[in-house]
Amino acid sequence: MRLSRDEIAHVALLSRLKLTEEEMAQFTGQLNAILDHFAALTEADTGDIDATTHVVPMTNVMRADVQRPSFAPDDALANAPERAGDQFKVPRVVE
């Protein structure tokens, strides 16, 4: 499996990453080398083996539905790059 430059550019877009020409060239080589390494997995006979998502023998952890205190707006907004009143401010989304 070889990733083309166009495919790398597409994955970069999905990842919300902007790559320079230099990074594009470097990543194309490196990602393909890593993917070649992944090819070894085809040798593993997985048939109908269940997937492991995590190893703790637990599912559906529940807690009582009780009201708890949360952060005050000023604490929650303290790290905001830009703020307007009690809201996070971002550039216009809809034209």
Binding site: R16, L17, K18, L31, V90, P91
Partner: peptide, 25 residues
């Protein structure tokens, strides 16, 4: 001027090469 550019520029300037490589992978 728009959110997609803001996010892409932010991540481009904020992340180092290895982090970008793994996000891509």
């Amino acid at each position: 001027r728009d959110t997609v550019t803001m996010m892409t520029d932010t991540r481009d300037q904020g992340f180092g090469a290895e982090v970008k490589r793994r996000i891509m992978l």
